[in-house]
Write a protein that binds this DNA or RNA. Structure first.
Length: 423
RNA sequence: GGAGAGAUGGCAGAGUGGUCGAAUGCGGCGGUCUUGAAAACCGUUGUACCGCGAGGUACCGGGGGUUCGAAUCCCUCUCUCUCCGCCA
């Protein structure tokens, strides 16, 4: 969430910028400022009363100690009214604070100034593309290829669990494992430290990265233990840094992690979700960085370059989009999406999303850093990106590399797969 | 799952109703001494909020309660450890 101080100091800017996200913040910002003024006033009153009470209590203690029981009891009689007042003030204070928090949490992150305006996907701006479009002599969509070569069994997954939980088989499973290892190795080479996080998280973690309270419908909820299946490794990995104060010299911290990801995708089924295009469970390697505010955008560019190197090594046609305000997530300040072209489907598939959250997540996480010699801790910046999400990469690989002889495996993956063609 | 013990500052650890934001040790930082370092000695060393400041308020795992007053007593939740059971 945005900090109170930022909102107070940049009231107009917040309202203006959030218009880019098609979010009218005028009323919320006004009431945040008003509520905070109330909060301060109430807190001052409550604390003054508390101080009086503390002083009085100390006096009573002294009196008892020096044997003046009667005086002590007289003083005691005076505390009742004070106690009621304090209670009343504190209740008011709690109410105001709760309301204030509710408003703060409901305010999205302010987009970076280069975020283009727009309503949705169609307004995203392509900033770069590369790779060669495949010239296919055969042309089948991946859901047919998968059946033909017996790589992934959707029906079996449906039997075991339900729709959207595929079973990978034989070379399909091997390809999956190859991609995961390839992505992790590339991450390591780029200086990311691998972690294997838990796949379920508690409520605090869900709040820390911004999935809660808003998007609980998107996560599988284990109600018996009040835990959530992770929708992305971003959640557990970023939460490593919840309530942490780093030294400025330790940044940037770079982590990568493979995890299965679980998404309910409530309400988002329909056209274009056949086969691997949308799943409830899928595999992804995620990169996460904690950065100094002054270099977070430079780091965002580096992360984008890293993802670009992955799609290039996989020899897939790719493009990078700068997301418009309307397509930008609640917590993000700037996001680049990567898409790869799927020849058989004749459409672009989103395979990565790389974002700078600035201090929006850090504020929720209480993730801070201290400059050498400084006493005051500052909020750090958090960033993350998929590097990469597997299913649509698999879809594109299968579709783009199909030949009458079989599906050719890109060179970089051959050592990982142990085969160079699927037939 | 059953029985018991525990959770205190960066770490270790004292504190069982008042002057406790909290002894002591270690670590960190500054200084004295030294050509330099070590040792020794002296000092200092949490976070957040309100306030120009003086200062105030809150925090001893989380939440609630008792009391004029809670780190300390009560309830509850979470976590850790030991023993037993079950098990990859």
């Amino acid at each position: 969430m945005l900090t109170l101080k930022f909102i107070q100091d940049n009231k107009e800017l917040v309202v203006e910028r959030l218009k880019i996200k098609n979010f009218d913040a005028t009323a919320i910002v006004d009431s945040i400022i008003e509520l905070d003024n109330q909060r301060k006033a109430t807190q001052v009153e409550a604390e003054a009363l508390q101080q009086e009470m503390n002083t009085l209590s100390k006096e009573i203690g002294m009196l008892f100690k020096s044997g003046k029981a009667q005086e002590a009891n007289e003083a005691k009689a005076r505390t009742g009214e004070l106690k009621d007042k304090i209670k009343e003030r504190n209740t008011t204070l709690e109410g105001i604070t709760a309301q204030l928090n509710e408003h703060l949490v409901s305010l999205p992150n302010v987009p970076n100034e280069i975020v283009p305006p727009g309503k949705g996907e169609e307004d995203n701006v392509e900033i770069k593309r590369g790779g060669d479009m495949p010239q296919l002599t055969v042309n089948e969509p991946h859901w047919d290829l998968i059946k033909k070569y017996d790589l992934i069994d959707f029906e079996l997954g449906t039997k075991i669990t339900g729709a959207g939980f595929p079973v990978y088989k034989g070379k399909g499973a091997r390809l999956q494992r190859a991609l995961i290892n390839f992505f992790l190795d590339e991450g390591m080479k780029a200086g990311y430290n691998e972690v294997i996080p838990p796949l379920v998280v508690n409520e605090d973690s869900g709040f820390g990265t911004g999935q809660l309270p808003d998007k609980e419908g998107q996560m599988y909820h284990v109600t018996a233990d009040n835990l959530y299946l992770i929708p992305t490794a971003e959640v557990p990995v970023t939460n490593i840094f919840r309530d942490v104060i780093l030294k400025a010299s330790e940044m940037p911290v770079k982590h990568c992690a493979y995890s299965a990801c679980f998404r309910r995708e409530a309400g988002s089924w329909g056209a274009h979700v056949r086969g691997l295009n949308r799943l409830h469970q899928f595999d992804k390697v995620e990169i996460v960085q904690v950065a100094h505010p002054k270099e977070s955008y430079e780091i965002l560019d580096k992360m984008v370059a890293h993802v670009q190197s992955l799609v290039e090594k996989l020899e897939l046609p790719w493009r990078i989009l700068r997301l418009c305000g309307g397509d930008l997530s609640f917590t993000s300040a700037l996001t680049y999406d990567f898409e790869v072209y799927s020849a058989a489907q004749e459409r672009w598939l989103e395979v990565s999303s790389v974002s700078n959250f600035e201090s929006y997540q850090a504020n929720r996480l209480k993730l801070r850093y201290k400059e050498e010699g400084e006493k005051k801790a500052q909020l750090a910046h958090t960033l993350n990106g998929s590097a990469l999400a597997l299913p649509r990469i698999v879809a594109a690989l299968l579709e783009n590399n199909q030949t009458p002889e079989g599906i050719k495996i890109p060179e970089v993956l051959v050592p990982y797969c142990g085969f160079d063609i699927i037939k």
